[in-house]
Design a protein around this nucleic acid. Structure first.
Lengths: 136, 136
DNA sequence: AAGTTGATGCAATTGAGTTGCAAAGTTGTT
DNA sequence: AACAACTTTGCAACTCAATTGCATCAACTT
């Protein structure tokens, strides 16, 4: 298993078990965010629950972030190195209604919103739906 | 039953059945968006499925809009008169982590996003999480 | 009044996410 | 190496919201 994988796990203080190395390896090669179900199918033998808990752990440790794109199944994608999952780290996500893929638009930060007085901000979710460049 | 209710139904060409009048009436008096479950509890006798289909109809006819606030249950709220549910009609939603209510920030339009080239926009969902003015 | 269409209500299903618990694996101590 | 303490994994079973099928009921048409 790639040395890089273990570095990433260690950097976020996640014990590098075989399962976790495998899951991280697969996540790292995705071009779009994946659901638990999709991830499950990428392994021969994979227990849904273990996968579920692995993703939970990764998310807690801010190695990945989850995206609720409104399709009913949550998608997961790697965080950038620098990401702390703070509001200012967040980016826009794009769901293509044609290829049904959810993409991280890492270069597009979520625009700031002027909330009404006395509203405080903790988090923002912004998902744009449309057709991606590949599907036009 | 209020004459206004029937006008609204007629305006969106929805047949004004007793059920629909009732549901619209309840929806109209809400200050925040409600889930199907919450709505169900506001009636003595209410069938979940009828409610479900009523809401679907209302949504199709653009009388209400649904909000996926990330809590796992979809919320519904009345559209404004002028609303066509086009991207430029959309507003930001706010989920308060304290009172667990989801509010339409009708006065805050969703900021425009510069998508990468060849991405086309159909729809945007933007939910801000935090604490609302009542809960501070 | 019969026929057509749409609305409603009940039962049952789907599908994603989640929990409980026991078995297997890992780590540290003697 | 042997043991205890803790963590991770895998199976079964459950929850909860959303959805479908189908039979019944209501309203409108000719």
């Amino acid at each position: 298993m790639n040395e890089n994988i273990n570095n990433k796990l260690n950097a976020k203080s996640i014990k590098p078990t075989a399962m976790r190395q495998l899951v991280l390896h697969v996540l790292a090669e995705q071009k779009s965010a994946v659901s638990m179900q999709e991830l499950e199918q990428k392994f021969e033998k994979a227990d849904k629950v273990t996968l579920y808990r692995t993703l939970k752990t990764f998310e807690e440790k801010k190695l990945i972030h989850s995206i609720d794109d409104g399709t009913g199944s949550i998608k997961y994608a790697l965080c950038r190195e620098s990401c702390q999952c703070r509001p200012e780290d967040l980016h826009v996500h794009f769901y293509c209604t044609e290829c049904k893929q959810t993409y991280c638009l890492n270069d597009i930060p979520i625009p700031s919103v002027n909330l009404p007085v006395h509203f405080t901000l903790e988090n923002i979710n912004m998902v744009v739906k449309g057709i991606c460049a590949n599907c036009i």
